[in-house]
Design a protein around this nucleic acid. Structure first.
Lengths: 334, 334
DNA sequence: TTGAAAGCGCTACCAA
DNA sequence: TTGGTAGCGCTTTCAA
């Protein structure tokens, strides 16, 4: 591999000039710049990442911590990873993949100077990693909404607000008994966003004075049937559903279809989830899109800004508006 | 961050001694080693990855090229990525995530000395990246079976052999008309493994003198129905199916159930695919498991060996045996 | 069994 | 506008 010295020699300049041409951190005459760039091209020169990292204290690599365990939603994780990697590349960063299961990864890559900063997925309300990350003194962007952000940047979808939008929409249509289906605790551990959505749901329902019922659901036909039964038992006047569980949604729709329940005539339904996932359903439903890719993109943009020394840590909650696709209507008899 | 100098000072030894204690490349007295390790622990010392890479010409990072486009099977990709990262960590390697879409990534990470070696997924029979990789002179392991491996290591599942196993099993049961369902060309580009499976299928069928029918299928209820119709049109004596398309399988099963076709009484079915994916079906089917995680694990082991300077490039094809789950039986009237 | 010191290839400061 | 060069933190050879 050619070194910066080889390029300098070939172009008849000093190595520092080559460095400055490449980094653009110094004014260079057009003639010199051209000679250097020619030499770079001729030799196929590429700076040695390690040498550069050593001299500049920057690796141009960001660490991405993803949950790779069984019960993480692979569609969502993939969509997120894709957005992160493509956005990172646009900012001249590469991505080091770290798994949540790899305890010690944060310390290792950070104090070993493997990465300039971190994007950490799936942060829970009381995630112990938040305190650790704060101690590491590296720019980090958390995906999620920890109770204490400790000076770290956070991005997430505003699940509470989405729930309020869904409830408001249904209340406006005249519904007075609304059910919420969310992921069961087992399948998402203590994922904060489930609770945040439920809190928003209950708050909005209380404010509107409507009755609610809630039930977790597993992604299986039986669980879907049981879930519907449970909601009806809790609340006999149930006329609408908010479903915050992409994987269970098809089974719920199947169960309803089997019962002969028609949407929206007999029941209204609003889903909260990624459009890329729900879009693969057989049937279109009213949707509050969780813009997973957008969250990933914003996370990297925020990290890149912090690494560039501009901007400060902040908490950003993305929103979306309800897209109607014919699964909601006024309840029967109105 | 503490440097090796700090540790040396703290332990009262020279920096080279610290280096040797950490690398184990030189005999060190127990006393010295203990003092050094104490100092390391006390200072929380962690070698600077860039400095190490510069001095040793090794980064302890491997590049993993994955297809992150829409139509890649996310379940399979995730399973693979998980196996690669965990295996890599076991060998003291970190993983740099590269996407297939990022043209130039191979050259960049390779000549920039960002990675020691590469694992490249989804290699097609005539993949242009094979020649490029050969030119880069870095250890690489290809997932797939290129026509020319050009001195590179390859790992994959033996799809041709799996097809032969499936056909042999069905022929042994007495079937004389067998259909093959595989992914449509659009959804997998020119993925070589689809062709390899089909070749094995046709070869085994020809050898046994049984009639065949083949039809691609998209993962939708309509496509599944159309696919079944097409197979029957091609071959009226169809009594068994080999399905090499995880995503279409549930729709095929639904379509058959709707028609009142019972497995295995009316039709025998063998699936070829990842157990982790087909396991989530409602119904168990005879399966030739594609051990995705195993392929990832083996790929990293092979790469680690090559990076350690032991072993040579080789082509490894993993196999699996048919697991019976009650979806095959002798055809009607036998 | 240990130490000294020469680089690895680059960046960025100090000079010119 | 350009060059010289110290030094980033480590590995490894040469000496002892």
């Amino acid at each position: 591999m050619a070194t910066i010295m080889d390029v300098a020699q070939e172009a008849g300049v000093s190595p520092s000039t080559v460095s400055y041409v490449l980094s653009g951190k110094r004014a260079i005459s057009a003639a010199t710049r051209a000679r250097v760039l020619d030499a770079v091209a001729a030799l196929g020169y590429r700076p040695h990442a390690g040498a550069r990292a050593l001299a500049s204290a920057r690796t141009q690599v960001i660490g991405l911590v993803v949950p790779l365990h069984e019960d993480a939603d692979v569609n969502v994780v993939m969509q997120f990873v894709r957005a992160v990697t493509t956005t990172a590349r646009r900012h001249e960063y590469d991505v080091l993949l770290l798994t949540q299961e790899d305890a010690g990864a944060l310390e290792r890559v950070t104090s070993g100077a493997l990465v300039d900063g971190l994007v950490v997925m799936d942060i829970e309300a009381d995630d112990p990693r938040v305190a650790l990350l704060a101690r590491l003194h590296r720019p980090a962007v958390l995906i999620g909404l920890p109770r204490e952000s400790r000076g770290l940047s956070c991005v997430d979808f505003d699940f509470a607000r989405a729930a309020r939008s869904a409830v408001d929409h249904l209340v406006r249509l005249g519904h007075r008994g609304i059910g919420l289906v969310s992921a069961s605790a087992s399948s998402v551990h203590r994922a904060g966003y489930v609770d945040r959505l439920r809190a928003g749901f209950e708050e909005a329902a209380a404010a509107a004075g409507v009755a609610v019922a809630t039930s977790p659901c597993d992604p299986s036909p039986q669980a879907a049937r049981a879930c519907l039964a449970s909601l009806r038992a809790q609340q006999s006047g149930l006329t609408a559903l908010v479903v915050h569980h992409e994987a269970a949604l098809p089974h719920l729709l199947d169960a309803l279809a089997e019962e002969g329940v028609r949407l929206p005539q007999d029941l209204s339904l609003v889903a909260v989830g990624s459009a890329e996932v729900t879009g693969r359903l057989g049937r279109a439903v009213d949707l509050l899109d969780v813009p997973v890719g957008e969250v990933g993109r914003v996370a990297v943009e925020m990290l890149a800004e912090r690494l560039a020394g501009v901007g400060t840590a902040e908490v950003r909650l993305l929103t979306s508006t309800l897209a109607e696709h014919g699964s909601t209507a006024p309840p029967r008899g109105r």
